[in-house]
Write a protein that binds this DNA or RNA. Sequence first.
DNA 1: GAAAAATCCTAACATGTATAGGTTTGGCGT
DNA 2: ACGCCAAACCTATACATGTTAGGATTTTTC
Lengths: 204, 204
Amino acid sequence: MARAGITTERLILMGAELADEVGIERVTLAEVARRFGVKTASLYSHVANTAALDDGISLLALAELAELATEATSGRAQREALAGLANAYRDYALAHPGRFAAMLRPLTPEVAAASAGPRHARLTEAVLAGYGLTPEAHPHAVRLIGSTVRGFITLEAAGGFAHSAPPAAESWRSIIDALDALLRNWPAPDSSHHGHTTSERNHA
Amino acid sequence: MARAGITTERLILMGAELADEVGIERVTLAEVARRFGVKTASLYSHVANTAALDDGISLLALAELAELATEATSGRAQREALAGLANAYRDYALAHPGRFAAMLRPLTPEVAAASAGPRHARLTEAVLAGYGLTPEAHPHAVRLIGSTVRGFITLEAAGGFAHSAPPAAESWRSIIDALDALLRNWPAPDSSHHGHTTSERNHA
DNA sequence: GAAAAATCCTAACATGTATAGGTTTGGCGT
DNA sequence: ACGCCAAACCTATACATGTTAGGATTTTTC
């Protein structure tokens, strides 16, 4: 019987492809083994367990997307850079929904400690450098961009825009315009509202 | 042997509590049964299957949050209403992470068809009514708010802000301020950029 | 109080994860 | 060329969850 020639990398890649086809939550060692024509137990020579496979897919996606995002922003500034970054994310999520979903899940603590940390945030920081924000506003703006992009993409993936006009792509462009405008005109800290509302009491 | 007195509602509530404790992905009929002191198979008199339990938790969260959000926005406008809505979401997510995560997952198609549709969007629309946006901008703004709130909350829950300053709550307030400013000054559609960039070619 | 219905049970099977320990294969040194 | 050995793969086993079928028991209803 010829061997399947499995390596950890090929295994993770197979898992990533499977994720894109059926969703990350249905990626199973049993199914990956089936696709390699191998018994499930055999995979434990290449990965420690299911969590390790998930981590691998996550890190693969992280690396692939970082590459694309870097390319999409280099040599650009302001709206061009912002749109490049945002589109890199959305395009990747549409092309590789399973990988992208895997990437959103927190890594296993040990792996997280060993891996490269917040590559995303650093990319966003580079984009925002062109907007001349104040040092206090900067991290908030980074988080706003990250939140909005993540939120939009996951909402779209969950079908949140499917049953209503206008098409998602149109809102996407509009939202990028809006964020660009906002970054160009970031509001000064407003101290005129100090927890008036009930729900703000917990946010003092 | 006295009976456990399980009803569909109590079962779903137990599932919701379990979700808040251990995460929605670890909510299992077996564990729920254990907590009721009952065999797993017995639960099938009350729910069709695991998917139905998930749907139930999802709908419970949807209803609870809609109630809170309605309360938090009624009688308010502009920033007050926006902050009320956003804080209602975040407070709920912090208090009930499992329920909230359940809510983000798409419902089973049959249940989705039968249920009340996009209650969220309607609440956001009400908030935005006070900003006097143009009819074209309106749906985009609704989606921006929804995306940002969802994105921030899930990022925070995933620990995305845990290992860097400033504290999440500070960014949260700043982001609400920024969104408020943006809604008050929504940019006119900008036609000056027509797919220059590589990554925009697919977004014509 | 008996019939009917709801609740809970046991039993069985399917799928997935994981470990232990055995067999085969392919490369490597001599 | 040949034998060794480590890696790749296997069988067997144990256990968890999900799900269905059909039986027993409690509760409700008339």
